[in-house]
Amino acid sequence: MRILKPDILARLKNFNFDLRRHRVEGHLTGRHRSLKRGFSQEFAQHRPYVAGDDLKHLDWKVYARKDRFFVKEFQEEKSLKTYMLVDRSGSMGYRGAGPETKWEYARRLAMCMAYLILGQGDAAGLLTFDTERRDFLPPRRRMTHLELMDDALSDGVTGGETDLAAVLSGMVSSLPRRSLIVLVSDLLGDSARILEALRVYAARKHRLLVLQVLDPSERDLDIDGPVLFESMENSDSLRCEVSLLRESYREAFALQQRLYEASFHSTGVHHAVFYTDESWHRGLARFLARQSAVA
């Protein structure tokens, strides 16, 4: 694999991504509790017998007490379907003060998450997008699925313009309910619309993990002199003296991040920010530790 190199895999063996409390809908039996009642080891409830029920589930002890037939129902354990939504718009190709582009960081992060999910028996799929949906790999539980994902993410960014909010809104209907959605993106754009789109995911009972990948220059704007900024997503440009607007930019950036955090907190979305100047395993370890604490 070109992304998950042996040294990365060696580090990943020390990580654990615990998602057992997440209720899922699915056909495959797995480690996660399903909302559907089934037949398994864990008792769920009694219900009145109806014609057609298997007699072996009748609770004879209740019949003896109440003289009526009740059937014992058990909690069915299902496999979790995870979708890795990776932003490959033009802005992800930006490399400022960090050692690599946001895209390189983001795809490694996505692959690591997929590895961890597959490693505990859950299914993981991949969906990349820029202006529209690009690569799609449906969730599978096989580890060999990683190689397909690696192929899909090995290419560079497409460089196209993205309307993240529109793309997210468009994809939500195609995903089954109660899935685990891991969104890897820089979340740059109209933050209000992005948040509105992500609320739809929450409404459809998806569990959403937002991994925001940013370059430190996008936080600090530590550039000097007059600069002609050219957008990496469209032909837009801006000529300015950076020192003139650095303060204002930092304030705007901080405001945007506070807005994301507040909104995600209120909707129960797990949000983590990764800067490309920080090593991937440190950021991932911090994120997973937080997840374990929340779970």
């Binding site: 550039i223 002609l228 990496m232 204002s248």
Partner: peptide, 22 residues
């Protein structure tokens, strides 16, 4: 100002907002 260097930047939304505020 005339000889501003070119620099690709991910997204200009925040920059424009900051430019207007500054």
């Amino acid at each position: 100002m005339r000889r501003a260097r070119r620099m690709a930047f991910g997204d200009l939304t925040l920059l424009r907002a900051a430019y207007a505020r500054s």
